[in-house]
């Protein structure tokens, strides 16, 4: 199908983009990489009155190393995230996850911030943003604000933005040195959206797991942290029995949906199996 008609504005600056969105009321839409929005526009599932193109705004295509965290600007493409040397060194869990995101041609265009805004329940970047204490930086008609990723991701394909706001960057925390990490996903074909994925961070102190983080995707409305599974592991040595306990807590906590690709039961089983694998992996890597 072809898109329904819309007006097109190429934003010169963040202020210009926000002003254009504000003037459009609730009918404006930002386009970044277009790798999720364009299919929806082509199918007329989304019919914006005004499309605001942010691709030519300068300064947004940077990954900034800010010491304890990294700042990913709104035009950081998947290709850049996947190949960034600082991310590979300091946030290996994100580096590993990016290899599973789509295909190289899609990665040339798609943006990290666009993926988090799109909030697909089966997308890697919202999950990683939650795992890494992400903070979403937002510009709007009344200036700037920041909100935690957990408050930004409100549900499947929805976020906490007001219609006249845009995301300018997302900050992700670098895990403490020595933090063990694990990431695993299952997709029918490599590069397709996954049926389920799990990511884990674990610090090791005196033979026990500390600051445990467990995040999942594909098994609910939107990616989420699994606090009950983290609580099981916290302060204990993740032996096989303890991991089994954490997996049970995880399976209990999630509410996967049945769809054409997999049943809810299968997704629950899969998430548990992946979690067992990556918890052990993260513990192994923790120093």
């Amino acid at each position: 199908m072809k898109p329904a008609p819309f007006d097109y504005v190429r934003a010169e600056s963040v202020e210009h983009a926000v002003a254009t969105l504000a003037a459009a009321g609730s009918d404006g839409k930002i386009i970044a990489g277009g790798q999720s929005l364009m299919p929806m526009i082509n199918f007329r599932l989304v019919r914006p009155a005004v499309l605001v193109d942010i691709n030519r705004i300068s300064g947004l295509d940077r990954i900034e190393d800010r010491g304890k965290h990294l700042r990913l600007g709104a035009l950081v493409r998947h290709r850049m995230t996947a190949s960034d040397a600082v991310i590979a060194r300091d946030v290996p869990v994100l580096h590993a996850a990016m290899e599973n995101v789509a295909h190289l041609t899609v990665r040339n265009r798609g943006t990290f911030c666009g993926s988090v805004c799109h909030a697909d329940p089966s997308a890697e970047m919202p999950m990683l943003t939650l795992l890494l204490d992400g903070v979403v930086r937002i510009a709007g008609p009344n200036g700037e604000r920041e909100i935690a990723a957990a408050d930004f991701l409100t549900g499947s394909l929805t976020n906490a933005l007001d219609p006249a706001e845009m995301v300018t960057a997302i900050d992700i925390a670098k895990p403490a040195p020595g933090t063990g990490w694990g990431f695993a996903e299952f997709a029918r074909r490599h590069g397709d959206y996954a049926l389920a994925a799990v990511s884990v961070l674990i610090e090791r102190a005196d033979g026990a797991a500390r600051n445990v983080r467990v995040a999942v995707m594909g098994v609910g409305e939107i990616a989420s942290r699994i606090v009950p599974a983290e609580a099981v592991l916290e302060g204990r040595e993740p032996t096989a029995a303890v991991i089994a306990e954490a997996v049970a807590a995880l399976r209990d906590d999630i509410e996967p949906m049945s769809d054409l690709s997999a049943s809810a039961d299968y997704r629950r089983h899969l998430a548990g199996a992946l979690a067992a694998k990556v918890i052990a992996q993260a513990w192994e890597r923790a120093a």
Partner: peptide, 15 residues
């Protein structure tokens, strides 16, 4: 110089 889906790109974006 980089591959892209032309069906996910608007002609106006290629200006």
């Amino acid at each position: 110089g980089r591959s892209a889906r032309s069906c996910l790109t608007l002609a106006v974006m290629a200006d």
